[in-house]
């Protein structure tokens, strides 16, 4: 999963301004950030500080108002919507706070979905889905529907969906926000395990308990990056 290109992600002077009627909201201002391959990074900060906006820019769900974004050596800030969708399906895995599994698709179909969009052939998809489900310990739930799973299990399926395509980076938005502490801890452990296996992970969290599990934490305040510190991490 790790890539030779270093840094994997480089943001230079990134700003994001939202225009609503006559009001300009500066969600992010002059963000410079580099993420190395295999790094486990947390973005934290108070509500409304721009965490989710930064994650959506990193995930190419949105484009910056200013600044440059280079992903794996390729500039991506000026890509069209279709090009961004293509890069997203190949290079980025998403984990959402609300799990976001599609209710009328089975566990298998949910995990398979981004692989289909990537154009992967069916045999490869099957093996990737099985591998990912095995990794999160839910192979026995492969034909279940989301409604038949607990919250913790749903989020583990979401993790499997994010990593099944072996993306360059996994972006997780408050992945424990909808879980109780036991399930939250399990999911965080799963992410740490993936990182130990070489995955680059970037999570948004404001839960201080989980900051201890990451290698590096950046802190946002009013749309500015105010702190960027390595964390001591318990190594299993």
């Amino acid at each position: 999963m790790a890539l030779a290109i270093d840094p994997l992600i480089r943001l230079n002077g990134i700003s994001k301004v939202f225009h609503t009627e006559e009001v300009e909201t500066h969600a992010l201002s002059a963000i410079d950030l580099e993420i190395r391959a295999g790094e486990y990074l947390a973005i934290s900060g108070p509500s409304g500080c721009g965490k989710t906006t930064l994650l959506s820019l990193l995930g190419l769900l949105d484009s910056p108002s200013e600044g440059s974004y280079v992903l794996a050596g390729e500039p991506v800030s000026g890509l069209s919507q279709a090009q961004r969708a293509r890069v997203r399906s190949r290079a980025i895995g998403f984990i959402f706070q609300a799990f976001n599994l599609i209710g009328d698709l089975t566990v298998y179909q949910n995990i398979e979905l981004p692989l289909k969009y990537r154009g992967m052939v069916p045999e490869e998809r099957r093996s990737a889905v099985h591998g990912a489900l095995d990794q999160v310990g839910l192979l026995h739930r492969i034909n279940h529907y989301p409604a038949q799973l607990s919250g913790g299990q749903q989020q583990r399926v979401a993790v499997a969906r994010a990593v099944a395509g072996r993306p360059l980076v996994v972006l997780a938005d408050e992945p424990t926000g909808n879980l109780d502490s036991a399930n939250g801890a399990q999911v965080m452990e799963l992410l740490a395990e993936l990182n130990r296996g070489g995955a680059t992970i970037c999570i948004v969290t404001h839960d201080p308990r989980y900051l201890d599990r990451v290698q590096r934490a950046v802190y946002l305040h009013d749309g500015r990056l105010v702190s960027d510190q390595p964390r001591d991490r318990e190594v299993a």
Binding site: L61, A85, R86, R88, F94, Y117
Partner: peptide, 16 residues
């Protein structure tokens, strides 16, 4: 809407 947004986040093109 939310499902469609999700699908697009996961890499679905407009044509999809």
């Amino acid at each position: 809407q939310r499902e469609l947004g999700l699908r697009m986040a996961l890499g679905a093109q407009r044509a999809d």
